[in-house]
Amino acid sequence: MSERTTSASWAMGIVKALEMDGLDCRVLFKQLGLDYAALDDPDARFPQDSMTRLWQRAVELSGNPAIGLNMGKVVRPAQFHVTGYALMSSQTLAEGFKRLVRYQRIIAESADLSFRLLDEGYALILTVHGDHLPPTRQSAEASLACALALCGWLTGRTLHPRKVLVQGAEPLNLEPYKQAFHAPLVFNAPYDALIFERADMEAPLPTANEAMALLHDRFAGEYLARFSESRVTHKARQVLCRLLPQGEPKRDAVAQTLHLSQRTLQRRLQEEGTSFQTLLDDTRRELAEQYLAQPTMTLLEIAYLLGFADPSNFFRAFRRWFDTTPGEYRARLTGTPLPVSDARTPEYTAQTP
Rank of each mutant, 00 (worst) to 15 (best):
F219H: 10
A66P: 02
L240H: 02
C25G: 03
M1Q: 06
A208D: 06
R105H: 13
F315C: 11
E271P: 03
L279A: 02
A140I: 06
P245G: 01
A350K: 14
L243G: 00
E248Q: 15
L185N: 00
L174G: 00
E229S: 09
Y177C: 04
L126G: 06
Q277F: 09
L258I: 05
F196G: 07
G96N: 00
V186D: 07
E60S: 13
T6V: 15
F196D: 03
T349A: 13
P65L: 01
E222R: 10
G168Y: 03
R237C: 14
L39T: 04
R198K: 15
Y103F: 15
A199R: 13
M20R: 15
V101I: 09
R162C: 05
A17F: 09
L87Q: 09
K235D: 02
A37G: 07
P339F: 02
T127Q: 11
P135M: 04
T207D: 07
R284L: 02
Q294T: 13
T257N: 07
A253W: 08
A225P: 06
T349E: 05
A203I: 01
F97M: 09
L240K: 00
P161Q: 03
H129N: 13
I195K: 00
Y291E: 08
D112R: 13
Q238A: 14
L279P: 05
L133E: 10
E301V: 11
F46M: 01
R45M: 02
D24H: 10
P339N: 02
A149P: 07
S114A: 10
T296Y: 12
A253P: 07
T324S: 06
S62Q: 08
R157C: 14
E328L: 07
F315G: 11
F29K: 03
D43N: 12
E19M: 08
A140L: 10
V340H: 11
R284S: 03
M201L: 06
E170Y: 06
D217G: 00
A111T: 11
G327R: 04
M12T: 12
F219W: 12
G335E: 05
Y304Q: 09
F308W: 05
G33N: 01
A169I: 08
D282M: 07
Q266F: 12
E248F: 04
R99T: 08
R344E: 15
E286A: 14
A203Y: 01
A317I: 00
D281G: 01
A44N: 01
E272H: 09
N64L: 06
D192L: 06
L305V: 07
Q31D: 15
F196L: 05
V232R: 02
V232W: 05
L87T: 08
S341I: 15
L280F: 09
M51S: 04
P65I: 03
L305C: 11
P326Y: 07
L100E: 08
N209C: 09
